[in-house]
Each structure stands twice: as structure tokens, then as C-alpha cells.
Design a protein around this nucleic acid. Structure first.
Lengths: 211, 211
DNA sequence: TAGTGAAAAGACAGGTCTGTCTGTTTTTCC
DNA sequence: GGAAAAACAGACAGACCTGTCTTTTCACTA
């Protein structure tokens, strides 16, 4: 999806972080949006192809023309959902006009907005890896790819700040981001983003002092 | 399981954190152990009853006599796996002869041992909630119950240390523990436990200073 | 030794799953 | 307006799913 921008955000949709809120313009996009919604809310294995067909108001042959197997549909959903989420996430962060220090901490404000959405269901990649664990290499690869984008961004910020050990700071942020996501998903309490932010501030103070 | 201790650890088993390494003494325990292993490694929905039967070397009628439905088997597995894990985890922590300060930080050492086990597959409760998300209330409840044990222990430690805000310290540790688990699961790198520990130290220094 | 109950083995029903195939209708584009 | 591509509708095959049921085996006990 979105090779050419055939999907555009629904007017006034609050939840630009998810594909589920795009207005699909063709059968392929409709299938992707429906599959994404269902897979992420009911599980990948628990959602049947027929359910996707019904939700997408399409035909079986059409689905299998665009996505030759359910496995490939799952991969396409993760790919598209990841791209949508990252566009939203990094887009929000790019608007932060502040020193790298503050921009890095702004991550947790954006996360809190995500957690506060009533449709928040956790991170699709964390959920997918949790569901398939070791039994689906392609899903793990998709998750790795997604996380590598995050890591690249975080490391760049750490370097821009001139922190002594950018890699360790990145690892620190990864733990905090994953932890906040899971805690918020389980408790439905978005304020775990604040808890994570406080820890991040603590870490940044700590490593700056050592200079 | 374990109403009376009919299961005992396999001699020399390194991985006492999981039911999968107990020596089952009757059909019911064999089913629980097999189901636990399969559910946690291939997913709950993706694992069929017949697969469990085969792995447990038992008969279908026997399984359905002890667990009237797959849903109830899932709940029993989570219950038993949680109890086994907590017995291992808190047992390890109880052996730590040190001030509450150190005992709380010792959590991350125990976690690292868990992550280092080749059979580590993440936290069964995080994985189960991820798989079913909102579509299975009983699973969410089981996860809540498990986490509440952890929270009780953490809060008690924070109070024993005389920390100014035990609840906030507990929330902090919850984020760090969840984050370390997920990061280690995805990367298969146990040292995320150390990263989390450093953050915890940072937090404890911070809240102690404010006294 | 006869009886009792737990477990094994596996056939079976009824439903759902993925994926294929055959037509018909709609859209698109020249 | 007419040809080509795309999408719709749905029957169908074959596998697999959960859950029930019957029959056989076996261990223990009165």
C-alpha cells in the first residue's frame, strides 16, 4: 500500500497512527485496512480469511489475487501498519522545535497520546512476535525491521546531543519504550508514558554528569 | 496442579521457572506440561487439542475430563505456569541476604538468568494478552492476577526501604521489568536486564536524594 | 478373585479453516 | 462504445478444528 498515495487520512480522524483510519480507495487497500483492524484486535490466527473478506466487502478471489496466502497478508499488514505508525510517530517528533535533549524526551509525550487513544491495542509487532514466538521467522524479521528504524532515530538523537555512549542510551530508551507500551496495554493507563519519561530524564542527567 | 505437590522438579533442571521442566506424575499434569510448552511456543490459537494430546501421550477423553474446554485448559495453563514462575522468582529473591535496596535491584539479576535460558520465550502473560488483546477477558484477568503479585512484592520492598513514594517506585519497576522482558525476547539478548538495572539504580538514587 | 474406576485408543459429528475455481458484473481506458 | 482488466459472488475440496462417544485396557482394592 501507499506506493502511490492512494489512501488518505479520514478527515478529522484522531488516530493517524493506525492504518485502520485511512480511507481506502481500492480493493487492495480495503483488504489491508480490514485485515489490520481484525488481526490486531482479535489475533492473527484467530481471524479467518472469510472474516476479513466480509469486513472488507470484497471477494475471496480478489483477496487471493493481491495476497497469495494468509501468511503474505499478515506480512503485508505488518509492513503497512508499521509504515503508517512510523510516519505518524516521527512526523510528530519532527514538529518538536527544541534541543535534541528535549526532542528525545518528547518521545514519551507522543507515546502517551498513542496510549490514550480508545483504540490503542499495544504495538502490532510486539503482539505479533508474542503470538508466533519462534514459529514464524518472517514476522520476527518484520518486527526487527520496525525496531531498527526506531533505533536509528534514537541513536542519531543521542549522537546529536553529544552523549558519551549513544548505543547505551538507545538501549535504555528501547527498554523504556517497550516497557511503557506493555504496561499501558495491560492496565489501559496511559500515564505509564510519564513514568518512563521520568526514568529517561534520570538517565540523561546521569550520563551528562559523567562528562 | 500442585494442590498437592505431585509434580516435582526434574533433577538438575536449570529452568525451574517453567512448568515445562517438571516431571509429571499423572495424566492431568502431563497434559498441563505439554499444553504449556506448546501454547507458549506456537501460540494458543495455533495449537490444536490433538497436538496437545499427542505431546502428552494421553487420550482426548482424558483431556476433556480434566479440562472441559480448550478455554479452560488455557486458563489452567496460565494459572499453573504463573505459579511455577513466581515460586522460582520469589524463591530466588528470598535467598538474597542484603538490604532491601539491594534485594530490589537483585530482581534484574534473576531476570537475566531467565532471559539467558535457551528456552526463554518471553512472559506467558504478556504473550497471551498480546494474542487475545480484548477478545478474552479471562486471560486478561489471569495476567492482572499475576502482575498483582509482583506489584505487592515490589511495593513491600519500597516501603521497607522507606522510599518517599512506594507506588511510583513500583510503577517504575513495572515499566523496567516489562521493558526488559520484551527487549530480551525480541533481540534474544539477556543483557537488557543490566540496562534496566542501571535505570532502576538511577531511580533509587534520585528518590533517595529528595529525602 | 471379582469389581471399580481411571486412562487409552480412536471413530465420529458438525463446524471452520485455507485456498481454488467458475462464472458474472463492474470499472477503466483507448 | 467496446475491449481488457479488475472485482464480485459463491460453490467447492480437503484439511483441521473442538468436543462427544464407545470400546478396550489396566491397576488397584475389597
Amino acid at each position: 500500500m501507499l506506493d502511490e498515495p492512494k489512501c488518505c487520512p479520514v478527515a478529522g480522524a484522531a488516530s493517524a497512527w493506525s492504518m485502520a483510519h485511512l480511507e481506502p480507495h481500492n480493493a487492495r487497500d480495503r483488504i489491508l485496512v480490514a485485515a489490520s483492524t481484525l488481526f490486531c484486535r482479535q489475533g492473527f490466527a484467530a481471524t479467518g480469511i472469510d472474516t476479513v473478506i466480509d469486513a472488507a466487502n470484497t471477494a475471496k478471489a480478489t483477496l487471493y489475487k493481491h495476497f497469495p496466502s494468509k501468511q503474505q497478508l499478515i506480512e503485508a499488514v505488518l509492513d503497512a501498519e508499521g509504515e503508517t505508525w512510523r510516519a505518524w510517530f516521527f512526523g510528530r517528533l519532527a514538529k518538536v522545535q527544541a534541543p535534541a535533549n528535549e526532542r528525545m524526551l518528547a518521545v514519551f509525550g507522543v507515546l502517551q497520546d498513542w496510549f490514550s487513544d480508545p483504540g490503542f491495542y499495544g504495538c502490532p509487532f510486539i503482539n505479533a512476535v508474542a503470538e508466533f514466538e519462534s514459529s514464524n521467522g518472517a514476522v520476527r524479521k518484520a518486527a526487527e525491521k520496525h525496531k531498527s528504524h526506531l533505533i536509528t532515530w534514537l541513536t542519531a538523537q543521542a549522537i546529536e546531543q553529544g552523549l558519551p555512549d549513544p548505543k547505551e542510551t538507545t538501549r535504555t530508551f528501547v527498554v523504556l519504550i517497550d516497557g511503557a507500551i506493555v504496561a499501558a496495554q495491560h492496565t489501559r493507563d496511559p500515564s505509564f508514558a510519564r513514568t518512563a519519561r521520568r526514568l529517561a530524564e534520570c538517565h540523561l542527567r546521569d550520563v551528562s554528569r559523567k562528562d
